[in-house]
C-alpha cells in the first residue's frame, strides 16, 4: 500500500468546489492580478510596434515618415498611451516581486529587500537615461 491517507471505500457525496467566471471581480487583489496578466498583451503590442518601426526605417525615409504619421493618429496614440500605463504597471509589480525572489547575501547577512528593490529601480533609471541621452543628445 502506498503511504499517506487511506481512501475510505465509500464516501459521502461531497460538494465539489466551484469557481464563478467573475471571481476576479470579487477582490481588489484578484482584479489587479488579472490586469497584470492582461498587461502581457500590451507588452506584445510594444514588441510588434517596435518591429514595425524597424521595418519602416529599413524601407527608407518615406516609409518612416508614413509610420510617424500613422503613429500620430488618435487611435494609435491612445493605444500607445494605454500600453505605456500597462507597461509601467507591469514593471512596478514585477519589481515588487524581485526582493522576495532574489535572496542575495553579502557575507553572512541577507541583503535587505529594500536594497534589491532600489537596485532594480536604479537599473531602470539608468536604462531610461541612456535612451534619453541617445534620443536627445543625438
Amino acid at each position: 500500500m502506498s503511504p499517506g491517507q487511506v481512501q475510505p471505500e465509500y464516501r459521502q457525496r461531497v460538494l465539489p468546489p466551484r469557481v464563478s467566471t467573475l471571481w476576479w471581480l470579487g477582490k481588489g487583489t484578484y482584479f489587479a492580478f488579472i490586469l497584470r496578466e492582461l498587461s502581457c498583451v500590451f507588452v506584445a503590442w510594444f514588441v510588434a510596434y517596435l518591429l514595425l518601426l524597424v521595418r519602416a526605417v529599413s524601407q527608407g525615409d518615406a516609409s518612416y515618415q508614413e509610420f510617424l504619421a500613422w503613429s500620430a493618429t488618435t487611435p494609435i496614440l491612445l493605444l500607445n498611451l494605454v500600453s505605456f500605463l500597462f507597461l509601467i504597471f507591469h514593471t512596478v509589480t514585477f519589481f515588487d516581486a524581485a526582493p522576495r525572489a532574489m535572496v542575495m547575501k553579502v557575507g553572512r547577512n541577507r541583503v535587505p529587500g529594500r536594497v534589491v528593490l532600489a537596485g532594480h529601480y536604479a537599473g531602470w533609471a539608468a536604462a531610461s537615461a541612456i535612451v534619453c541621452w541617445l534620443l536627445l543628445g543625438a
Binding site: M1, P3, G4
Partner: peptide, 11 residues
Amino acid sequence: SLKYASVVRYD
C-alpha cells in the same frame, strides 16, 4: 513519517 511506505494513515 511520510517517507515510510509501510505507514498507512486513517485520518
